[in-house]
Design a protein around this nucleic acid. Structure first.
Lengths: 199, 199
DNA sequence: CATGAAATTGAACAATGTTTAATAAAAAGG
DNA sequence: CCTTTTTATTAAACATTGTTCAATTTCATG
């Protein structure tokens, strides 16, 4: 059969990404196949390649969504009149919570083998940067006399800790006594860094 | 052809792991195929399955080596008469250096999709624990009045930071100005935490 | 109504991990 | 030293994978 034209190109693109997202959420990215995605949207595998370059390209677009929601969750986590320290803690815990609830998605976003794509979807980098900026903003509030470079570095140090906690916990490599001790780790990390940052 | 018996079972196991290790080092784990390993050791792919359960099993044994060298490098990095802070810094930088030089190996060890193996090779867990113990030892030296639980948590907080830095840097998600600013991050992380830990 | 363009398919391709019956060689037994 | 048994290894097959592309069917246009 030829053209069905039930859907425009953009609709198809959205459907594919949406379908892939739910498949990833259910079974994890490495169990998601092109044929699964195709049947999920009611087409044949070949069609996918008229909309995307390849599977990796689709996953990249799925990650774009993941980063958006992760950013939103972190931003929402800080309450109106929170101190900078509270804000950073809240964001760190939100990050951790996302990793715990959207396990497979987080896995696809971060703990996947390293191979830079030919043409990364625009705005993917900037979105990660935006995440850092949330922390940078609070660090500035906390210490107005810090230089740009100090803020830049501080945010990355702090966030490396949060990310590392989430990543190691996800792969069960933290060897914690209590099951939710990862939250304690993030709080400890933030407390100690903020105390240093103030001085 | 039937039995060649050029090599004992243990020899074969060692050869396979060794061959896989160099293949991983060269091209990265996801580009290593069963047939490549087989030809590297001068056999056919089927033979691998009389020694190991499957490919993942082989990779797990490769990781055992990786963890051993990583541990060794961290342990060696602390000089004889170093202060605890210097020691931790040195270990953190060694960790970072390993991630940079043994990129694909580090990738296989940590930033790989999460799926617990049926039968993890014995001693793999304990080896990660041993890495933490290196840090715990220094934290104890630094503050003798800390409880076991505090030391446990502190070491994990500190190491999450180091690991997170290495992991994010490897996937180019730190967005650093200077190429070796990751070292600065680790130093900042250690300095700030140690200062908090002392008090 | 016919012609063209375009979307979608279906079937193929090469490569993957893994299984298994056949086979070659060594070991054991007489 | 020949025969038998055991065992290591292979060769070939299998099901799936991502990806490509000529063929086909449908829509839009003249």
């Amino acid at each position: 059969m030829g053209r069905r034209s039930d859907h425009s190109r953009e609709e198809l693109q959205a459907m594919i990404i949406e379908a892939t997202l739910t498949l990833v959420r259910d079974r994890g990215a490495d169990k998601v196949t092109a044929r699964q995605i195709a049947t999920a949207v009611g087409y044949t595998p070949g069609m996918l390649y008229s909309v995307f370059i390849n599977l990796q390209d689709i996953f990249l677009h799925v990650n774009e969504i993941g980063l958006r929601t992760l950013h939103a969750l972190c931003a929402e986590a800080v309450s109106e009149n929170a101190t900078p320290e509270e804000a950073i803690k809240a964001m760190g815990l939100a990050y951790l919570r996302f990793a715990g609830t959207h396990t497979h998605q987080f896995d696809l976003m971060f703990t996947r083998s390293i191979q830079q794509p030919e043409m990364p979807p625009p705005g993917l980098d900037n979105q990660i940067r935006t995440l850092f900026e949330l922390v940078e903003f609070q660090l500035r509030r906390l210490n107005a006399s810090a230089t740009d470079e100090e803020v830049h570095l501080g945010a990355r140090a702090l966030w490396s800790g949060v990310h590392g906690t989430a990543a190691l916990r996800l792969s069960d490599q933290l060897y914690l006594d209590a099951p939710d001790a990862d939250r304690d780790i993030v709080e400890l990390l933030v407390t100690s860094f903020v105390q240093y940052w103030r001085a």
